[in-house]
């Protein structure tokens, strides 16, 4: 193992030289997490909307349960889906274990409570008169829902980015459900875990840099979006 600076330089070299294996891992990460967030977002936003605008028995309990799921470790999600999808499990016949689909399922389960909780906060912060104005101006239910989503878009975008940042960096569920198979289910976090365990720090740091760059980009985007959402003085 060289010095940290040597390793970092080697990592940058790997990234900039267009190392095919490395970029394939990055592509798998983005594909799996992108699909997961796209599938999770519509139902999660709908649940967030119902929790905000509908009063029904058990609403508070649902909010508490969702908040509890926020703190479940990714590895526990991975273990639960592993049991469900394993040969002996109730969904074993689907033969999804160690596939990208299984990783997507795990990441959906991780992203969903984040999207609901942050979406709920964003919608609660939106002015209630927006809904009433939309309805009284003749908007049907669907148009009124989209109007509220538009009014709360900055908060909802923050939820989207936070959830994406969480799932693309998680290792527990991806490792258990994907199996870290090269060219198929190896993504950034599982590759970092593997390479580090082998003493191949350059690739681990290169992938870490990608995650760090992603985190910075998401945060910068978030700041930009939240800045745009400031009320006009």
């Amino acid at each position: 193992m060289g010095t940290l600076s040597d390793t970092t330089l080697a990592a940058l070299n790997l990234l900039l030289s267009g190392n095919a294996e490395l970029w394939e891992i990055i592509a798998i990460s983005f594909r799996v997490s992108g699909v997961a967030i796209l599938i999770a977002s519509p139902p999660a936003l709908l649940v967030a909307f119902l929790l905000t605008y509908k009063r029904f028995p058990g609403r508070r309990l649902l909010i508490s349960i969702n908040s509890t799921f926020l703190s479940i470790p990714a590895v526990v999600i991975g273990l639960t889906f592993f049991i469900l999808l394993s040969r002996q499990g109730p969904l074993g016949e689907w033969r999804l274990l160690f596939t990208q689909t299984a990783m997507v399922l795990g990441q959906i389960a991780l992203a969903f409570p984040i999207l609901v909780a942050m979406g709920h906060s964003a919608l609660q912060a939106a002015d209630r008169r927006a809904w009433e104005t939309a309805r009284t101006l003749g908007a049907n239910l669907m148009r009124a829902v989209f109007t509220i989503m538009r009014e709360a878009r900055f908060g909802l975008m923050a939820a989207f980015l936070a959830a994406f940042g969480r799932i693309i960096a998680e290792v527990g569920a991806s490792m258990m459900l994907g199996g870290n198979i090269l060219h198929y289910t190896r993504n950034i976090p599982t590759a970092i875990a593997l390479e580090s365990s082998k003493g191949e720090f350059a690739q681990g740091i290169a992938l870490g840099l990608v995650l760090l760059t992603l985190a910075f980009t998401l945060n910068a985007l978030l700041q930009h979006i939240q800045g745009k959402g400031q009320p006009v003085s």
Binding site: R129, T133, A134, L137, T147, R150, E151
Partner: peptide, 11 residues
Amino acid sequence: LYLHQQPYMFD
């Protein structure tokens, strides 16, 4: 049509 005391303006 109902108009609030402080009318809401969409973004």
